[in-house]
């Protein structure tokens, strides 16, 4: 096994499993967190990640297949997506096409009542098409505010890391192709007004 990546909360290693190239995603202990809190969060996230991926697979969404869950080691074994992160892909020339696919993918998730919780550009992978990964903070919900919060996280990661491209408009125009998107976009406006665009300091 080789360490591939140290993510936001997990160590991701590649390896072989039943003749396939797979990813071992292990949530390692955080020494700064109280042990009770640590245990609660890791279990919650492991469980919700595997459940939500299963749910999306059953609808044919582009997510890595799950091969197994090793509860005692806080490890999920999943399909290796042989590509680059969207983060990297957006630095190339085809960024518009990737943004379009990502927007459609996120609206598909939302239409299936999955809220991703952390859809930054590091949590999408690009191969021949765009895949979504990392469901550790995901929930099942049809709440438009929660969906809007997803949009905000994505736009913020776009804004803060790809400020050279005006991805916002492209992304939102493809997202709005989803028939139920109007209320989400409405909620996004409210959220952005409440947040950093309306700093009430003191």
């Amino acid at each position: 096994m080789e360490i591939k990546y140290r993510g936001a909360e997990a160590i991701v290693e590649t390896g072989q499993w039943l003749g396939r190239k797979v990813i071992f995603k292990t949530r390692n202990k955080r020494g700064y967190r109280h042990p009770i809190l640590e245990k609660r969060l890791v279990k919650e996230r492991l469980r919700s990640e595997s459940r939500i991926i299963e749910r999306l697979i059953s609808h044919g969404v582009n997510v890595p297949a799950i091969y197994g869950v090793d509860i005692s080691n806080n490890c999920i074994i999943m399909e290796f997506i042989d590509g680059i992160t969207l983060e990297k892909a957006l630095r190339g020339n085809d960024f518009e096409q990737y943004l379009a696919q990502t927007a459609k993918l996120l609206s598909l998730l939302h239409s299936l009542t999955v809220v991703h919780g952390d859809p930054t550009t590091s949590n999408f992978m690009v191969t021949d098409s765009v895949y979504v990964i990392d469901f550790g903070l995901s929930t099942v919900s049809d709440d438009n505010e929660a969906r809007a919060s997803d949009l905000r996280v994505f736009l913020e990661s776009l804004d803060s890391h790809h400020s050279e491209i005006s991805g916002r408009d492209i992304f939102l125009s493809y997202y709005s192709e989803w028939s139920s998107s109007a209320l989400v976009l409405e909620a996004l406006k409210v959220l952005e007004l409440r947040g950093r665009y309306n700093l009430m300091r003191g």
């Binding site: 919060s149 913020e156 990661s157 890391h161 400020s163 050279e164 700093l199």
Partner: peptide
């Protein structure tokens, strides 16, 4: 009043995360 995670990217200090 402020709770933010800030870092430099492309000519600006950007807010990567903050309290909602």
């Amino acid at each position: 009043a402020n709770t933010q995670v800030i870092a430099y990217a492309a000519g600006r200090y950007r807010v990567f995360g903050e309290t909602i």
